[in-house]
């Protein structure tokens, strides 16, 4: 596995070492060792309940919001363990942005939705430019440029999700985490989001949790397959270049899963 990533000869955006995540006494995820390539799309797949969302949320410390959760092991970001005592989760989240399963724009105007994150993070530049740039990057500008003052909630589901992506881009993160970003959308909106993700790859490292194997096969560069063991703790089964994983899986479980025999 290490070979595989090193073949690409780049540096890692995020790297976990022996990561275990607990909710109280329950171990949700065990012994995860993963490296994510910068400016690539990595998909996390696996049956529901296998902890892939929990893994994703570990990268911007969103799990901290669940009071009973705690993490064992290390998550490295630019050589720094994100779970060291001196690391501020607020700062982490600005650098590791997140797009959620259901579109969740603020009940504010479209403009403010994009500008808000930048504002609280001390953005000093021209806000109008930032809003336009971000909306363009999220492929939403043409649809909303005449109604920036309208509520973000007035948009369609797919537009709302792209607005959420624009909002994330505006704070200039390095990594964007996406938690099944298209699962609540219709097929056409899904397609647009997938195209958008491909575009974003130029500038951002993207880690995406998905239910949809076609989506993973179509749009990711790497795929990690998770499963859960008898204690319902999630673990990593196989991690490789997407093409390889889908064409010649090394693990029997992976093969069963991608051919639709369980999950």
């Amino acid at each position: 596995m290490t070979d595989l990533v090193e073949n690409h000869n780049g540096k890692y955006a995020v790297e976990t070492r022996d990561m275990n995540i607990y909710y109280g006494a329950f171990r949700a995820v065990k012994d995860i060792n993963l490296q994510f390539k910068a400016r690539r799309i990595t998909a996390l797949i696996g049956p529901s309940g296998c902890g892939k969302s929990t893994v994703l949320r570990a990268f911007n410390r969103m799990n901290d919001l669940v009071p009973t959760s705690w993490l064992e092991g290390e998550v490295f970001f630019h050589g720094k363990n994100l779970y060291d005592n001196d690391v501020d989760p607020v700062e982490v989240r600005r650098r590791v942005g997140m797009v959620f399963q259901k579109p969740n724009p603020f009940p504010k105007t479209i403009y403010d939705n994009v500008a808000w994150g930048a504002k609280i993070n001390g953005y000093k530049g021209d806000m109008d430019i930032l809003v336009e740039q971000s909306l363009r990057q999220a492929a939403l500008w043409d649809e909303v440029k005449d109604k920036l003052g309208q509520s973000g909630l007035s948009l369609s589901g797919g537009q709302q999700q792209r607005l959420c992506i624009a909002r994330t881009i505006a704070v200039k993160p390095e990594i964007i985490l996406m938690d099944e970003p298209a699962s609540a959308l219709d097929p056409i909106s899904t397609l647009r989001i997938e195209e958008l993700i491909q575009d974003l790859k130029k500038d951002y490292t993207i880690i995406i949790v998905t239910h949809n194997m076609q989506q993973a096969a179509r749009s990711s560069d790497f795929t990690a397959f998770f499963n859960m063991d008898d204690d319902r703790a999630g673990y990593l089964v196989e991690y490789s270049v997407t093409n390889e994983l889908f064409t010649s899986p090394q693990n029997e479980l992976t093969e069963q899963y991608i051919t639709g025999r369980f999950g």
């Binding site: 969740n104 603020f106 994150g117 609280i120 994330t168």
Partner: peptide, 19 residues
């Protein structure tokens, strides 16, 4: 989900609550 969105953008607890 709104609180999570705010945290996800790097907001502090107070910023999330008040704004």
């Amino acid at each position: 989900s709104l609180r999570q969105a705010a945290y996800g953008l790097g907001a502090t607890k107070l910023e999330t609550a008040i704004r």
